[in-house]
Structure formats: structure tokens, C-alpha cells
């Protein structure tokens, strides 16, 4: 089992992801430079958070054409596990690997705080170690995290249970007040239909150890490891 963390110019959560995987969870992990064209040998690719290419033009828009992305798209189209965190999620939507888009926060401010999110679907490679309805405390840190998609896309996401996490209050209630950025349907993270590509705005890599205030982020990475070790879930066609 091997994880690869992609480094774009401007990524700044790359080391956090690397540390979380390699030193907290002790799984083989390596960095992948954005100019790399060959990513064979990896089982899960992480697109980390940050400000790739300075967020110029639109968040994620330029990174999506980075040389490594061709290999990443190819890897994911063959069923490889791909997770995009924060800026990584923005890159996945820009690349068309996940539906919708992430736009400026409703409040126009950059928000950096611990956030409660509710687990909506546990039958995925990314959430199988969670309980349905479980509330996780995972930090958010973004200026463009407001999830937008047209009505038809939203209906499809809901119908196929592609919403994996929603912003909620401490009780797990999905309310407007608990929605930090104006995301439609309080969406914090979604996966593709096949369930092998997952994007989320919260940062699980920043909630791995007690000293950081929460270890809930582990559940997401542990789900991936569990999936890779057991192959107990069958991906949808």
C-alpha cells in the first residue's frame, strides 16, 4: 500500500498530509511533484490544500492543467482512490472529476475554525470506519468553500448518496447557522458515482492527534487504509 501526496506550486498542506499518513498512521507515503508524468505504484493519491498557482484566475483552475493531472485522471479513471482536500477539492471540480464548483464564501471572509460535519454515507472507501450520522470535528480553512451545483446535479448527488459530509451543529443537526460558507445543502464533501474520487473542504490531516484538538480526521484516512487492506467494499460501476 502506498500513498502519494501531490505538490503543486503553492500547496501548503502537503507536509501535513505526508506527516499524517507517514508518521501518525505509519503507512508508506511519498511526495509527487506536479511535473511528474508517471504515478504508477500508488494506491491512493492525495491532492492537498493550499493555494496552487496563487489561486489565480479561479481556485484550482490552473493546477487542473498541471502535467501530473493527466496521470491522476488516468489513475482515477481506472478506479484508483483519489482524495482532494480543500484546494484539492477545488482542483477536482475544476478538472470535472467531481460535479459542481466551489465559490466565494457567503460571508466573503476567509474562515479558519474547528467545524462539525456529519457523516452521511459510510459505504465508501473514505468513510467505512465512520458511523452513519456520526459528528466529526474537523477544521476548515478556506475563502472559497461555498459548494454550488445546479438543481439537477444536486438532485443526482442526493439520489446517489454522493454527499458524504454535511456541515452540522454539535448535535448533528443540519442548520443554516451551522453552515459556515453558504454551501448548498450544507455540503462539505462529495464523491463521484463510482465512489473512488472524494473531495472535501475540511482538513482531516489537521485533526490527527489529541494535541491538535481532535483526532476525528483519522477516521477518513483509516477508512482508506481499511478499504485498501480488505477490499471489502465493491465500487459501483
Amino acid at each position: 500500500m502506498k500513498f502519494g501526496v501531490v505538490q503543486f506550486p503553492g500547496s501548503n498542506c502537503d507536509y501535513d498530509c505526508y506527516y499524517a499518513l507517514k508518521y501518525v498512521l505509519r503507512v508508506p507515503t511519498a511526495f509527487i511533484w506536479h511535473k511528474e508524468k508517471d504515478i504508477s505504484g500508488y494506491d491512493c493519491i492525495v491532492l492537498p490544500g493550499g493555494f496552487s498557482y496563487g489561486d489565480y484566475l479561479r481556485v484550482g483552475a490552473i493546477a487542473r492543467y498541471s502535467p501530473v493531472m493527466k496521470a491522476v485522471v488516468d489513475f482515477a479513471s481506472k478506479g484508483g482512490l483519489l482524495i482532494g482536500i480543500c484546494n484539492g477539492f477545488q482542483i477536482l471540480t475544476e478538472a470535472g472529476l467531481l460535479p459542481g464548483a466551489l465559490i466565494r464564501n457567503h460571508c466573503l471572509r476567509f474562515i479558519c475554525k474547528p467545524q462539525n460535519i456529519r457523516v452521511e454515507n459510510i459505504e465508501t472507501p473514505f468513510t467505512n470506519r465512520c458511523q452513519k450520522g456520526q459528528v466529526l470535528k474537523v477544521p476548515i480553512a478556506h475563502g472559497e468553500g461555498c459548494y454550488y451545483a445546479d438543481q439537477k446535479t444536486l438532485e443526482e448527488l442526493e439520489e446517489n448518496n454522493q454527499v458524504l459530509f454535511r456541515y452540522c451543529d454539535i448535535e448533528g443537526e443540519i442548520t443554516k447557522a451551522a453552515n459556515p460558507n453558504g454551501s448548498l445543502h450544507n455540503i462539505a464533501g462529495i464523491c463521484n458515482k463510482k465512489r473512488n474520487i472524494f473531495g472535501l473542504m475540511p482538513h482531516p490531516e489537521r485533526s490527527m492527534e489529541e494535541c491538535l484538538g481532535s483526532t476525528d480526521g483519522r477516521l477518513i484516512f483509516e477508512s482508506i487504509i481499511n478499504y485498501l487492506q480488505t477490499d471489502s467494499l465493491i465500487l459501483k460501476d
Binding site: I103, R104, N105, H106, C107, L108, C146, Y148, D150, G182
Partner: peptide, 14 residues
Amino acid sequence: KLKSGVLDAQGKAT
């Protein structure tokens, strides 16, 4: 420009 259905938070604040 943003499509008509998309919330323009910047435009609203301005």
C-alpha cells in the same frame, strides 16, 4: 460573469 442563479457575494456586498 457568474451565471444568474449563482450567488455573487461580492456583488451583494458592493
